[in-house]
């Protein structure tokens, strides 16, 4: 060792944040906290998507707090798993989960979508360490994930996985199916797709806008192993991902059935909340706009009480 090397800052070996397993109850509480912070950050932003991020909160909690090998202190760690959010408009859930994991201060969530914020309206890789790609225009994430998974194989990194979260409306895009064919050709078993099957997109229900069913049969016919999973059940998501990692001969896609707007009564199943935050407009079936955030947080706090067994 040279004299200079001796003086450099002691390098801490990266360690996976998810080595220490949280109890299911702790994970559920985490998802609830993340939902509350999503509401607060969307309210502060005054624009952005509500339904998707709320519906995905359990999946992102499972990913960042149990499934992914990652280290928020070393976002570029060579051994990390990769998570790509292909439907970039749902990024509030990713920012919030990342904040809870320690990638950024939680108070920064209130800068969402604002001028000079690292939390751009749609994710930009260069803006925030820990983001793996730039997305927003739909349909490109699965191909990028396939390129990464193929490279891991070329580099003989058999211990790494690529997870790609996609929207269901996003499956209208041809680019997705180009990627699906490609992943099958190269048998990219280290690529795991997660489709947020919440049945809504901007113009209405997916089956009204552009029918996706039989979705399982579509993926299967493209050569993928398909797992239907309750995407609002953290334990089920974790189990499905373990199963996906055990499938070695083909890529796996989870069709994760989620409830859009999950946890906020007046938003659940209502596609009007796809692209809208709380507090900007009066909507039939929802409280007046100035009470939407309060009521959403109230709903989520009641749910929190049910998880802990305490009653308000």
């Amino acid at each position: 060792m040279t004299a200079t090397e001796g003086k450099t800052k002691k390098f801490q070996t990266p360690r996976s944040f998810t080595d220490k397993k949280l109890s299911l109850q702790k994970l559920e509480l985490k998802a609830n906290d993340i939902r509350q912070d999503i509401i607060k950050s969307l309210e502060a932003a005054g624009s952005g998507h509500s339904a998707g991020p709320l519906g995905l909160a359990d999946i992102f909690t499972a990913l960042y707090f149990d499934i992914l090998k990652h280290d928020p202190k070393h976002p570029d760690w060579d051994d990390r798993d990769i998570l790509l959010l292909s439907n970039g408009h749902c990024v509030p859930v990713q920012y919030t989960a990342m904040a809870h994991a320690g990638y950024l201060p939680k108070k920064e969530l209130l800068t969402l979508r604002s001028y000079k914020s690292r939390l751009q309206g749609h994710p930009e890789r260069h803006a925030l360490p820990g983001l793996e790609n730039t997305s927003g225009p739909l349909g490109s994430g699965l191909s990028q994930g396939a390129g990464m998974a193929l490279t891991m194989r070329m580099n003989k990194q058999s211990h790494r996985w690529v997870y790609v979260v996609m929207g269901d409306g996003e499956l209208n895009e041809g680019n997705i199916w180009e990627a699906a064919m490609f992943a099958n050709k190269y048998k990219l078993h280290n690529l795991i797709g997660i489709v947020d099957r919440n049945n809504i997109q901007i113009d209405g229900t997916t089956e009204h806008v552009m029918p996706l069913e039989d979705l399982r049969a579509k993926w299967e016919s493209f050569g993928w192993h398909v797992v239907d999973v309750d995407g609002n059940n953290i334990e089920a998501v974790i189990d499905a991902c373990s199963m996906a990692r055990a499938i070695v001969e083909k890529p796996t896609v989870l069709i994760a059935h989620t409830i859009p707007g999950k946890g906020v009564d007046y938003m659940e199943f209502d596609h009007h909340w796809h692209g809208m935050p709380v507090g900007i407009a009066d909507v039939a079936g929802a409280p007046p706009k100035n009470q939407q955030a309060r009521e959403a947080l109230h709903d989520l706090r009641s749910l929190r009480g049910k998880i802990t067994g305490d009653h308000e």
Binding site: Q144, G174, N175, K185
Partner: peptide
């Protein structure tokens, strides 16, 4: 071993390449 045939799919062509570049390749 370093050649990837993506078929007639130009959107996939560049997006797969983007993923490979993210992992340090020069596609």
């Amino acid at each position: 071993e370093r050649f990837v045939e993506v078929g007639i799919a130009e959107q996939n062509l560049v997006t797969v390449a983007s993923g490979m570049a993210a992992m340090g390749k020069i596609p």
